[in-house]
Design a protein around this nucleic acid. Structure first.
Lengths: 230, 230
DNA sequence: GCATGGTCAACTGTTGACAGTTTTCTATCT
DNA sequence: AGATAGAAAACTGTCAACAGTTGACCATGC
């Protein structure tokens, strides 16, 4: 209640609202990769006219979440396996950069909070039973804390924004890794130790190691599920 | 003439044309960073209605070349020095990744063409007189050839697309470096040697060395021109 | 002279209509 | 039965009008 008169009213146009809605629908899978959007149906179901809807769609085109063919329509971006691998390569390079920068720029308080987080993770029942390693929502998860600690806002935006969303479109989640929980925790601890030592190179190497293992783990699962489809 | 009936007609909507025009105007500096766009004036001068213009603007918002304040209007994105440094950090990490991948993925033909390019560069009068190192247009320049040789299309798109444009908005050009031409050429040669040796680590290190030197050189110039403004 | 309130012009945001394009369906021919 | 042509339906692209918001300017009060 104290903040009611102290916070500027944030104006949101219909375009802003619609873009958020679309993004949420894409990320939740309600709008599936490759699926076609009908302006008329969407405008009707959202209760807006086609103008602001088109503008919202254009913004998401600019962010490559949607792809348009002139006179035909708009589809949700879909990722081939090649795309996925390419994005993962890019993301790995950027997360390693973030980790290296965090070794220099992250505050002692932030690093202590990271260690506490890992203690909490160790107490998770699912980690102890090696069932899975679940983290809080995006803004509080281990990786994003490090990215934010890099001090490079652009980088944080890229990793937490469009790259993150592209991977979510593909249902790619590296967080929960059944059967690998204890390893992940140890890898996280190695990363934090390097951050604490303020050693950018060690931090980068520890992160790269962790990400490669995570990617390999997921690749195995993808190959298994793709061979099940044949 | 042989291709006239063999190439599909590429449809371009007004939105596509207008977005290209806007982008070109931003990059050429006709629309300066921070400057305000008037829909009415732009629509009149481009001879289109405000609808497609707004859509084009939305796309460029999605690509972060333009920034909108609701009910106020749209400005060309402007970069602080902090922004510039951040983007350069990101770009460096990605160019090093590209170079590392190129060491594996670039064809022998492409590498030979790169060497030939450096021979041509060596014959440039301006390089010999240490006045500057000028390259062909973007698609043919040394860096972008390597990025394309990485085999990672997403990465190439990021480096040749939005990141490139963001830096161009700031008039950031790393290509021409008066007083450093011979050094740059040697650095380029070291990069190609590492590519030829198919050594990803050496290629990455050579590129990182080159980019750090280039950045430092430009930083010096920026500091000099900023102190001249005081 | 400064602060406040009101008005108006200029702008941005949205809507619905119309034009153009593509897809679907039907009829006809071979 | 398959191919072709034409019409209609459904869609996308654009336009112009209207509604809402903001900033500039002017008048009034202290």
């Amino acid at each position: 209640m104290a903040g009611a008169l102290n916070n500027k009213v944030q104006v949101q146009s219909l375009v802003d609202v619609v873009a958020e809605r679309l993004e949420a629908a894409i990320i939740s899978g309600q709008l599936e990769p490759g699926s076609r959007l009908s302006e008329q149906a969407l405008a009707a179901s959202l209760g807006v006219s086609r103008g602001p809807l088109r503008e919202a769609i254009r913004r998401l085109e600019g962010r490559k979440l949607l792809e348009r063919t002139p006179n035909i329509g708009v589809r949700v971006a879909s990722l081939s396996l090649k795309d996925l691998n390419e994005i993962l390569q890019v993301r790995e390079a950027l997360e390693c950069l973030a980790c290296s920068l965090a070794a220099t720029n992250m505050s002692d308080t932030e690093i202590a909070a990271l260690k506490k987080m890992l203690d909490d993770h160790e107490n998770q029942k699912s980690v102890q039973e090696n069932k899975g390693y679940y983290q809080e929502t995006k803004n509080l998860d281990f990786h994003f804390r490090i990215v934010n600690g890099s001090g490079n806002d652009r980088l944080a935006h890229m990793l937490a924004g469009d790259l993150h969303y592209m991977l979510r479109v593909y249902r790619y989640r590296s967080g929960a890794q059944p059967g690998r929980a204890a390893e992940v925790l140890q890898e996280h601890r190695a990363i934090v130790a390097a951050l604490e030592a303020r050693d950018p190179k060690a931090a980068e190497d520890a992160m790269r190691d962790h990400l490669c293992r995570a990617r390999r783990n997921v690749e195995q699962k993808l190959m298994m599920s793709e061979s099940e489809n044949l």
